[in-house]
Design a protein around this nucleic acid. Sequence first.
RNA 1: GGUUUCGUGGCCGAGUGGCUAGGCAGCGGUCUGCAAAACCGUCCACAGCGGUUCGACUCCGCUCGAAACCUCCA
Length: 505
Amino acid sequence: MESNLFLYNTLSRTKEQFEPINPPFAGMYVCGPTVYGDPHLGHARPAITFDLVFRYLLHLGYKVRYVRNITDVGHLVADLDEGEDKIAVKARIEQLEPMEIAQYYADRYFIFMDTLNVKRPSIEPRASGHMIEQILMVKKILDAGFGYEVNGSVYFDVEKYSKSYNYGKLSGRVLDDLISNTRSLEGQDEKQHPADFALWKKAQPEHIMRWPSPWGDGFPGWHLECSAMSTKYLGEYFDIHGGGMDLLFPHHESEIAQCQAAIGHESVKYWMHNNMITINGQKMGKSLGNFITLEEFFTGTHASLQQAYSPMTIRFFILQAHYRSTVDFSNEALQAAEKGLKKLLAGYETLCKLAGNPHPQPLPQGGGETSTPLPEEEGRIEVIQQGCYAAMNDDFNSPIVIANLFEGVRLINSAADKKLTMSAQELALLKKIFDLFLFDILGLKDEKSNDKGELLDGLMQLVLALRQKSRETKDWGTSDQIRDALQKLQITVKDGKDGSVWNIE
RNA sequence: GGUUUCGUGGCCGAGUGGCUAGGCAGCGGUCUGCAAAACCGUCCACAGCGGUUCGACUCCGCUCGAAACCUCCA
């Protein structure tokens, strides 16, 4: 399978040609959510980024297995100092089983990702369901001599590891710097070296989430689940591992070390990282008062939001930036995105009419042949198509894809205005491009109800016919009254040369 | 302080050693009963200071500024 797809590998810090290990198969593992809180903007970006990758790989014909984990074990609440399990803390507060909470927020995550039109991965394994695999991996690392046990906990020996391998190759860190920059906490330090990390952690009595192990009751270290589950479902060497840039260190760095130690070689060919999100130029944080959940975005119920923003507006906005750039959310920017998306989708509707597709409304009759079309540029539609492919092949450059689609919209609208003509072949190809890139690959969709129904359609035809009569008699009062009343029902009427068209907002 | 990623016009956001990004907003036209939409034209850039070069927004260095990570835990 030949493709010209290039993607940016964080490991090499260059764009590399994508050559899967076992074509036509492609394996991708992406770090999923920790399910202890409601899904927010920070969840949307990686989900949409790797959804784009997933969709494009599928389009190129790869047989993709996309694995995204659900982390439902052993997390601390960031604001707490005591070192309690995140989920355990929540459970005590809300008097629920920890797994009940994990289930609740996992379900919420699934629902909101569905709303964002993020395709479900092939497998969504849970850390809690892979204790045996994780324990086995700890054993392997111990057997290989890269781990040590202290008081029922097992730690990874980074110092020893870095004598043979480069711990820090992914994030650019140097071990000596890590030492000098690590403030050693007094007392409870079981670790031999400040940079060592936990493979298995002994559960204190108050820990509700615990599992038996050869080292006593406890829970797996953070980095372990991803190594264990990616190996289980994608093999000891697979194509793409993705996640947010915030996970670069120590999470992904440690995953590399774990796999190297347990398996004897690295397990990932391409590392991909999406950049972070800011709100009005600031990071999103609970303490800053700009922590906005997806539900709040969709309903507009947050003090800093001027209005509700639909899932597709959020998706489009995220795709308007390249995934390796930071993206800054603001009301002004989101409103611009909302309008831009609307224009794109309206352009597609016009295209369908021009292309003779009855969906969603018939083209108003009439229109003369007297227009003087602009001279046709040879292959102007092909240029758009090639532009879209070139953009996707260049490290999934969705903003360029979108720019190309807007060029298509310009042609469509000009054709509708009879400023230029497009052949049936051109229209058909353009429709194909929109169907593929706008809907299948970018994963956008029209959110307004297209299922207008025969009854509504008939009623609207009647209403518009009556309004047309009043317009012909220049009864503007009646005409405007009808239009205003319809607008209140979210139905927009636009008067064109060839009659009026209507849309549900 | 270290590592990483950045700093583009009113806002968001691509890209490139010399050649148009794109969207939103603004301005001027066309169309229109009005409105909306659409079309055409147009203004506003490349954080700052040096250096390399025939030429830099694009390469190099420094300064300033922003974000993520650098502790136990995921």
